Amino acid sequence: MNDQLASPPLLLVPGHWLGAWAWDEVLAHLPSADARTLAITLPGLDGDDAERATRTLADQVDAIRNALASLGASSDDPAVIAAHSGANAPVSIVLDRHPELVRRVVWVDSGPMASGMAFAPGLPAAVSELPLPPFDELAQQASLEGIEPEGLARFRARAVAEPAPVVREPVILTNDARLAVPTTLVCCSISGEQVMQMAESGHPMFAEVARLQQVDVIDLPTGHWPMWSTPRALAEIIRAEADRPADERAASR
């Protein structure tokens, strides 16, 4: 059986301010990146979309579902989703609505959201979008470690402001079947040990992790954007996690 037939569909979903372009360096290091591998730009993050500031979480969920369909994902051939950072809101909803379509989810310096949570629930109604903050401000929220100056320049030039509805709306989850989807946490700016301690203590950011039935933790020490700081290492982890049996436990590394 060749790699194309052996490897499951793989969907790469970028976080806040990013489009499919954010995964370019990772895709270059995926040995079997083909018709069954896709990086997407979520609705609201396409700078050419004149209506992008009105896009919602529901729009993003539909886009992910459509992307899975385009990859041929089904209950017989479920996909692996790699989701970075703020992609956790729409991806958490997709896992809730369509757990049968997902063989494994790989959270990249991220994790599943709990029902009722929102990224910026108190965002004033008058605010229509959240632009990428200045880097000195952003660095107080998420580590920029490992990104070269040219990478930061590309980030600034290509970033698209996040639509307010996407960050304001709460994630509503009703299907506990999502908790059975095998999960890998790729821990970068926060160690796996810290993440699991936060989960066990009920910290809102990772409380949902404590409810998952199968969680594998892989440490990749770098900043919050490993697709730029360590793209080869991240690609190797994603490929390995995508290709292993769902019930096989991964050693933390």
Score class of each variant (00 low, 15 high):
Gly146Met: 08
Gly146Arg: 06
Ile147Leu: 12
Ile147Phe: 07
Glu148Phe: 14
Glu150Arg: 08
Gly151Glu: 12
Gly151Asp: 14
Leu152Met: 13
Leu152Ala: 13
Ala153Glu: 13
Arg154Tyr: 13
Phe155Arg: 06
Phe155Lys: 07
Arg156Met: 15
Arg156Lys: 15
Ala157Pro: 04
Ala157Gly: 04
Arg158Lys: 12
Arg158Met: 09
Val160Asp: 10
Glu162Val: 08
Glu162Arg: 10
Ala164Met: 12
Ala164Val: 11
Ala164Gly: 11
Val166Ser: 11
Val167Met: 12
Val167Ala: 10
Glu169Arg: 14
Pro170Asp: 12
Val171Gln: 09
Ile172Cys: 08
Thr174Tyr: 03
Thr174Arg: 07
Thr174Pro: 02
Thr174Gln: 06
Thr174Asn: 08
Thr174Val: 09
Thr174Trp: 02
Asp176Val: 14
Arg178Ala: 03
Leu179His: 07
Leu179Gln: 07
Ala180Ser: 14
Pro182Ala: 15
Pro182Arg: 14
Thr183Asp: 15
Thr184Leu: 06
Leu185Thr: 11
Cys187Tyr: 02
Cys187Ser: 05
Cys187His: 02
Cys187Leu: 03
Cys188His: 02
Ser189Val: 14
Ser189Leu: 14
Ser189Arg: 14
Ile190Tyr: 06
Ile190Trp: 04
Ile190Asn: 04
Ser191Met: 13
Gly192Glu: 11
Glu193Lys: 15
Glu193Ile: 15
Gln194Leu: 07
Gln194Val: 05
Val195His: 10
Met196Ser: 09
Gln197Lys: 02
Met198Val: 09
Met198Ser: 09
Ala199Glu: 03
Glu200Lys: 15
Ser201Thr: 12
Ser201Glu: 09
Ser201Ala: 13
Pro204Ser: 06
Pro204Ala: 09
Pro204Gln: 07
Met205Glu: 09
Phe206Gln: 01
Ala207Trp: 08
Val209Gln: 00
Val209Thr: 00
Ala210Val: 12
Ala210Tyr: 11
Arg211Met: 06
Leu212Thr: 00
Gln213Ala: 10
Gln213Tyr: 06
Gln214Val: 02
Asp216Val: 10
Val217Lys: 05
Ile218Asn: 06
Asp219Tyr: 00
Leu220Glu: 00
Leu220Trp: 01
Pro221Trp: 02
Thr222Ala: 03
Thr222Arg: 01
Thr222Met: 01
Gly223Tyr: 04
His224Asn: 07
Pro226Tyr: 02
Pro226Glu: 01
Pro226Asn: 03
Met227Glu: 04
Met227Ser: 05
Met227Arg: 02
Trp228Arg: 09
Ser229Pro: 03
Thr230Trp: 01
Pro231Ala: 06
Arg232Tyr: 10
Ala233Gln: 09
Ala233Val: 02
Ala235Arg: 07
Glu236Phe: 06
Ile237Gln: 05
Ile237Lys: 07
Ala240Gly: 09
Glu241Leu: 11
Ala242Asp: 04
Asp243Arg: 07
Asp243Asn: 11
Asp243Trp: 05
Arg244Asp: 07
Arg244Asn: 08
